[in-house]
Amino acid sequence: MLAAPLASHAETRPLRFGVVADPQYADAEPHLGMGRYFRNSLDKLRTAVAAFNAEDLDFVVTLGDVIDRDVASYAAILAVYATLRHRHIVLLGNHDYSIAPDRLSAQPGLLGLSATHYEYTHGGIRFVVLDGNDVSLFAPPQGDPRWQIAQDRLGHLAAQGAENAKPWNGSLGDAQFAWLGGVLGDAKAKGQRVIVMNHYPVFPANPHNMWDSDRITALLDGQPHVVAYFCGHNHAGNYGEAAGLHYVNFHGMVDTPAENAYAIVEIERDRLDIRGFGREPSRSLRLRTA
């Protein structure tokens, strides 16, 4: 799998790409209390891939949590992704790190990633992919200083009674946050629109939001060329708009026994249209201008 599509976009048609969030596959019995049907994600993903393959798309993105647990889970679901005829962009979610501790440092390579956060330009749009697991309780290997920073951040939020003070959320390291600011500044100088993608939501307020969501939204809201933020993690889905910036939380594929959840996004001029399938709602969103 490739971390970033490199081909130029033909100006004769809109930019179009597929979106999947939280397949969370495992060869495991359902968790009925949470409504998670892990095995069923294989057939759901096959259906989504067939729909994507029937369309003229620039790429397909999975917004994290390809698996629910165990490195062994990757074999079956990556075999389904291998039938995709489009480039596949993949983000890491918290469940992608539910693997043996001695495999944590090798995790990005399991999905063919050379970096966990990166950016690329396609169809004149700058896509910025964040790694919300950067400072967390599950991604940093033992002895990594980011683990203690994560403890401190979570403890601080918990002391404030913050609803997102959950051990299954994460945050950006300061170096990645500075990198994000630099990429946004470069895109602004080049007159490029930006879409940010991350596994974790940051807005509206929600128990699933990143620990440092406030500083991220403050940065994004002050960048009028940033037009959308796409994420997963909250399987119920969500949507919010702030000063014309659209925060779209896509529904989790793993939920429900049979009903699917995926989407095809089309961007043309001042519009972003989401064609939802199954539980994913369709939306037509007007893009703000810098």
Rank of each mutant, 00 (worst) to 15 (best):
G93K: 09
S98W: 07
L15Y: 03
A7V: 05
D96M: 08
D96K: 05
R36D: 00
V60R: 00
H88R: 11
G35T: 01
Q24W: 02
E55C: 13
V61Q: 09
Y37I: 01
T62C: 15
A10L: 11
L78H: 13
V80P: 04
L15G: 07
V19N: 01
A79V: 08
A51W: 04
R103W: 12
P101C: 00
A100C: 03
L45P: 03
G112E: 06
D65N: 13
G33R: 12
L104T: 06
L91S: 07
F59K: 00
A76Q: 12
L57I: 05
L42R: 06
A51R: 09
Y74N: 13
G18S: 08
R36H: 02
L84Y: 04
S41G: 10
A28M: 10
D58W: 00
D27P: 00
A48F: 10
V49H: 02
R39H: 04
A82E: 14
R85I: 01
A10Y: 05
V80D: 05
L111M: 15
R87S: 06
H86T: 00
F52K: 03
D65E: 10
T47L: 15
E11R: 15
P30E: 01
L45S: 08
T12D: 15
Q107Y: 02
V20Y: 04
R87A: 09
V61T: 12
F52S: 04
L42N: 04
R16E: 06
G64T: 12
N40A: 14
L32R: 04
L63C: 14
D27N: 13
V61L: 13
D43E: 12
L32Q: 02
I89H: 03
I99T: 03
F59Y: 10
P5M: 00
R39K: 11
A76N: 05
Y97P: 03
D27V: 01
D102W: 04
A10N: 11
L78C: 11
V66F: 11
F52D: 01
G109Y: 06
P108E: 05
P23H: 13
Q24L: 05
T47R: 15
Y81W: 15
Y97I: 12
H86P: 00
D56L: 14
H95K: 06
A76W: 02
A82S: 14
R69A: 09
G18I: 02
S105C: 07
F52I: 07
A51S: 14
L84A: 03
H31P: 00
H95M: 07
A21Q: 07
D56Y: 11
A106N: 08
Y74Q: 08
L104G: 03
G112N: 08
Y81K: 09
R87Q: 10
G109S: 13
A7P: 06
R69H: 12
P108W: 04
F59G: 00
L84D: 07
M34P: 00
A10R: 09
V90Q: 07
D102H: 05
L63A: 15
D22C: 07
L91Y: 10
L32S: 01
A21Y: 06
I67W: 11
Y81Q: 14
G93C: 09
A28N: 09
R87H: 05
A75D: 15
K44T: 03
N53Y: 05
V90L: 10
F17I: 01
A72Q: 12
L63G: 11
